[in-house]
């Protein structure tokens, strides 16, 4: 037990660019992010229609709406999440984790990106609790509801969408980069182990900032769809959003690296 399946990046021409950038004397997160986006282009393009990513984003929109309803527990139950009124924030997150795991198991084609999407969903939920200056431990379901309720208006929803896509994209970038990063340590770009952590965080920030393009788009989209659907955004709507947001983000990643 306790085994790990570790692999390195392929040595094809496109991935070679990523490897060379990681071993360069001066590491540049935007360039690396851009090179990864290009090297994994086909797979990242497919993620725009990935059922796991769509489902997780859709669930996020529904939970935001549920937090505004008078009975969050009943609304969550309708979504298939058996929340109890005496749940803590941690237990609620565990229920969301269980629910998404079960649900996404129907989409093995998502591969690791199913889990990445599920984590992005939970991170967006966690961050909303965090924005209240709280830790998860000791927070109640009511705290989650209160925190989340603020995100069910178009402006704040933009922030929530940005958190989701920023997390999704930074995890995706790290998923690829971390295959090679340990081997770049010891070179002049990353002399020591700690710098690898710093570099990963720089990638996070880069992804978060670029996800601003999603935020701006999300504000208008949420407002329009909520109006059209009377507050009930459907999976097809969510698919439409993901199909628009991910290519935008991908494009931004490539462009920023070229600067």
């Amino acid at each position: 037990m306790g085994h790990t399946e570790i692999a390195r990046l392929p040595t094809s021409q496109r991935w070679r660019v990523v490897i060379d950038l990681l071993h360069a004397p001066r590491l540049d997160a935007p360039s690396v992010a851009s090179a990864v986006t290009l090297a994994a282009e086909r797979r990242l393009r497919e993620l725009s229609t990935d059922p796991s990513v769509t489902y997780c984003f859709w669930l996020l929109t529904r939970l935001a709406a549920a937090a505004r309803s008078p009975d969050f527990v009943a609304e969550a139950a309708q979504l298939g999440i058996p929340v109890r009124s005496d749940d803590t924030a941690l237990r609620f997150l565990a229920r969301v984790a269980d629910h998404t795991r079960e649900r996404l198991s129907a989409y093995p084609e998502s591969g690791p990106f199913g889990e990445i999407a599920a984590v992005a969903l939970r991170e967006a939920l966690r961050d909303t609790v965090g924005t209240q200056g709280r830790t998860l431990f000791g927070s109640s379901l009511e705290d989650v509801e209160t925190a989340f309720r603020r995100y069910a208006n178009p402006t704040q929803f933009g922030d929530l969408a940005q958190r989701f896509f920023a997390s999704f994209m930074s995890q995706t970038l790290r998923y690829y980069v971390d295959r090679e990063l340990p081997h770049a340590i010891g070179g002049s770009g990353l002399p020591h182990i700690d710098e690898a952590g710093d570099f990963a965080r720089a990638m996070d920030l880069h992804a978060h900032q670029l996800a601003g393009v999603v935020e701006r788009f999300a504000v208008g989209w949420y407002s329009k769809k909520n109006w059209e659907r009377l507050g009930t955004i459907g999976p097809d709507d969510a698919q439409g959003f993901v199909g628009h947001a991910l290519p935008k983000l991908r494009g931004a990643l490539v462009r920023e690296g070229a600067r």
Binding site: L27, A29, A166, G197, A202, D204, L205, H208, G212
Partner: peptide, 29 residues
């Protein structure tokens, strides 16, 4: 201290102009 330096290294600079204290995942920027 090391984390503090991380943000300005590796070619990433914050695009926020006002004074800001923002949490993204594990880091406050």
């Amino acid at each position: 201290s090391v984390v503090t330096n991380a943000v300005s290294s590796f070619g990433v600079t914050s695009t926020t102009s006002q004074s800001s204290f923002q949490r993204t995942g594990r880091v406050w920027f």
